[in-house]
Design a protein around this nucleic acid. Sequence first.
DNA 1: CCACACTTACTTACTGGTTAGTAAGCCAGT
DNA 2: ACTGGCTTACTAACCAGTAAGTAAGTGTGG
Lengths: 217, 217
Amino acid sequence: MGMSEATEQAAPKTKRPTRAHRREEILAAATRVFGSKGYHQGSLVDVAAQVGITHAGVLHHFGSKDKLLWEVLEYRDRVDVQHLEGKHIPGGMDLFRHLVTTARLNADRRGIVQAYAVLTGESVTDGHPASSWVAHRFSVLRGEISQAVVELATERDVRLPDGEAERAAGSVIALMDGLQLQWLLDPDAVDLAEATRFAIESILTATLGSTVEITGS
Amino acid sequence: MGMSEATEQAAPKTKRPTRAHRREEILAAATRVFGSKGYHQGSLVDVAAQVGITHAGVLHHFGSKDKLLWEVLEYRDRVDVQHLEGKHIPGGMDLFRHLVTTARLNADRRGIVQAYAVLTGESVTDGHPASSWVAHRFSVLRGEISQAVVELATERDVRLPDGEAERAAGSVIALMDGLQLQWLLDPDAVDLAEATRFAIESILTATLGSTVEITGS
DNA sequence: CCACACTTACTTACTGGTTAGTAAGCCAGT
DNA sequence: ACTGGCTTACTAACCAGTAAGTAAGTGTGG
């Protein structure tokens, strides 16, 4: 086996970072900045300083602050599912296991949770550039989760009242977002993973009419 | 709201609005502005314009933008409980009835819900002036709600596992906050009152081990 | 193997805008 | 006459975005 496992351009000392690499650096920095200061309050100068360039350099790569935000949001999505081997969001009980696992991982990724919470909160302001992204994201998640609920109900021969799966899905999402908020403000008061597991189990148990347990993944 | 220049509380001789009245006007305006634009993005000029004065006039009354925010938060608390005759937060099942009632009322008070959501989200940014207020608020709410859970459990002779009441309380709060967010971004996708009732019932049912129904108030 | 053309990744400098906060003065009402 | 409520005028800071220039690469033809 060779000792060079790097897939990058090999031997020559890269004086200049590649475009792709630099963009990733900036995205990571922007995630930190928007997470810790918010979108409006976090400036391009802040972002640029973190990668050692000027704010005009950031604009060279991303065109505008709005576009940078968009890419940050997509970047978060990529990071969010990168621990899944299958790269595919699972269904049925596996989906809920995945949600709890994500919560457990998130407890060690404060920055990204904070960015998500801040941007989601900010997005309900008038004309915010992230609002449609967040709304769309909620909509997709509600669809996926409610389908998983239907799957579980079918498995257990439970007939759900009309709209019950959607209500449960919305509740699960709300739960996770709300718990993250409380955890961010007081990490000692809330055990993110445990609280998430408890709450999702509660929703599922009440919805399906029989005890549901989410076993460790 | 719209009590205009007819401000005679006892003495009808005042043409100029009283200090207290003017401050209330500004607080209401600030709630709207911070709600629709956020704290950082919402400016004193915006607030001042809504009451027909300049931003320096606002500073005359409140000293600084931070102090204005603090008073806005307290103002919200006052509005929030003003529909309670007893002015006292109830316990046991009445507490949960109150929460659902509040959700139903909130569906017609978008502005105040938005202000709360925006400020709560913003508050997790570093050094935000509202963060301690929000953290304290969460802490108080968790205490009140978990006590109500304990009361219900005692009523029904249910022995709760350690920390279960607190977990349930945190879940209920998370639920309400998260649902508000989804509702703000897409009011048609979520029925705020109905979803809140459903979700709280689910948590209580799962926690107490027997069906819980929250009847109309 | 090198020279020239071109591209990339920035920087510096600036524009036009917005911000919170301050200071001083005007004026109505008591 | 004096106080409280406000305005006008200003400051100093900060912002996103643009323009133009520069240095360091890359590709290509000879």
